[in-house]
Structure formats: structure tokens, C-alpha cells
Nucleic acid binder design. Structure first.
Ligand code: ZN
Ligand code: ZN
Ligand code: ZN
Ligand code: ZN
Lengths: 127, 127
DNA sequence: AACTATAACGATAACGGTTGTCAATTTAGT
DNA sequence: ACTAAATTGACAACCGTTATCGTTATAGTT
């Protein structure tokens, strides 16, 4: 198994929120690593493909990644201020998605559900 | 009010699914319009800013737009094959999102919820 | 209608995130 | 050690989007 991939995974583990490839690249270079940007992208791709990390698109189209603790299906509550993310489950949402798809005759259904807000800390420090 | 903006809005109305800026540009040029790509982007931006159309990010990061019939808060059931989209409501989801955010002390909450699948027509024609 | 000020337009260049290329380096197997 | 295969990283290419800027259409005034 690749050393670089482990490096990227560890860097991602060190963060509590979603990070972009370029974020992680900057972090690693800042701590002295000689890793290349291409390798960071490749590692994230591989980790994402194998389901080890979660990926979603930020509002401006950038791909952001997270090493989640939960290994079952879940969603995220993300702070707009600091980027911190909480893993959440929603049985009601899962049911609803299946039902609404079935009602309209859709098959092979997936869904994306993300909740955004301002966390307590950011809310307090903003006045 | 701008003529070009109306042109883009009409082109979008003619489609039942989400379309990208480049899709719409291709459509309009194909039907003889001399519109420029920049203008299509500008029109979509303006329509999106004024809330007249919905925008979301496709899985590969491209921005896609739709002229929705419903003018209240809603979500979408989108066909992966033909792009057709159905507007759906989910009171259960709205409740859940609010609750989960409140539980974790988050304020000023929004959410994105999209359901993807293969519609009946695409499912039948695919075997 | 003619003139002017203002806004809209479109070709092109620039931008930013991402992916492809390929030679160099590292790793794994013998 | 020696070799074959995989990994790496600098660089260029790609693609969607945005900024620039000279041109054109629109609206208001005389
Ligand atoms: Zn926060
Ligand atoms: Zn789910
Ligand atoms: Zn379909
Ligand atoms: Zn909603």
C-alpha cells in the first residue's frame, strides 16, 4: 500500500471538517512534506473510490473530502463558518427518499442530503 | 428588461430537466440564435439571483439550472438517464433538518436534498 | 429624426480546479 | 544486486466559468 496515500489519509483525519485537495496539499507542504499536488488528487480519488472517505461538492463546485468515523450510510451537518462537520443519520429521510422515488416509478435510487448552518461557537463569536 | 434573458428563460422552460449553461448555449445556437456564451452565463446568473430558476451542482461540479413550476421550497427527483426532474416536497425532511440542526446547536440552517434515480422510461429502454 | 447616455452584448483572454502525460524514483520480487 | 512493476511529481492540457473591453442596441431628450 502506498505511503503517500497514508499521508493524505492522516492529514484528512487531523481535520474535523471537509477539506479540498488544495487545502490538504497546502497543509502537507506547510509541515515539510515534498508531496506533489497530483499525488494528493490521486490519493483522494483512490480513497473516495474505495469508500474510505466521503466527498461532496461545495457551493462553488470544488470537491471537498472528509474522513468519516461512521462507516454506514449517513449525512452531514456542516458549519458555514469553520467548516466543522457532524455526522448525522436520518431514517425519516431515507424512508421519504425511497417512497418519493417509488411513487414516480424511479429505480436504482440514491440521494444527497446535506445540512448547512452556523455552529454554536461561530454563532457566539459573531455577535 | 433584457431580450436575451427572456430568450434564455424560454429555452430553459422548454426543458423538463436540469440544463447546463453550455447545454442551453448549444440549444440556442442550434436553433439559429446568435447569442454568446457569456450572455447565457450572465442570464442564468441573473435568473438564479432573482430566484426565478433553481440551480444545483451535478456530480462532476458543473452548474445545472431548471425553471421550476413550484415557487415554494421544494426538492427534486432527477433521472440519471434523461435528466428529467420532478419537483417534490418533503415535510418530513424539513422537520428532520431543523431538528438535527437544533440538537447540535446550529443556527441559520439551510439544506440541500436531491434524489437521483432512473425514471420508468429510461429503465424500460435499458433492459 | 438626430443625439446622447446607459445598459446589454459577444469575442476573447484569463482564471482555478482537475486530470493527463511522462520521465524519474521508489518499491517488491527474485 | 538486478529487474519489473508501481508510485511519484513537475508540467502541460483541459474544461467550466468569469473578467475585460470594444461594439452594438436601447431609452430618454431635444
Ligand atoms: Zn463553526
Ligand atoms: Zn441517506
Ligand atoms: Zn429518464
Ligand atoms: Zn427542503
Amino acid at each position: 500500500m502506498s505511503t503517500r496515500r497514508d499521508t493524505v489519509r492522516r492529514a484528512l483525519n487531523d481535520s474535523s471538517g471537509f477539506r479540498s485537495a488544495q487545502d490538504l496539499y497546502a497543509d502537507l507542504r506547510a509541515e515539510g512534506s515534498k508531496i506533489g499536488l497530483t499525488t494528493v488528487y490521486r490519493a483522494l480519488q483512490a480513497l473516495s473510490d474505495s469508500g474510505e472517505i466521503d466527498v461532496l461538492r461545495s457551493t462553488d463546485g470544488e470537491a471537498v473530502y472528509r474522513a468519516c468515523v461512521t462507516d454506514t450510510h449517513h449525512h452531514h451537518l456542516v458549519c458555514r463558518g469553520c467548516g466543522k462537520a457532524v455526522e448525522v443519520e436520518g431514517p425519516a429521510v431515507e424512508k421519504w427518499a425511497e417512497n418519493v422515488a417509488a411513487q414516480h416509478g424511479f429505480h436504482d435510487v440514491t440521494h444527497t442530503v446535506e445540512v448547512f448552518g452556523t455552529c454554536a461557537a461561530c454563532w457566539a463569536s459573531r455577535g
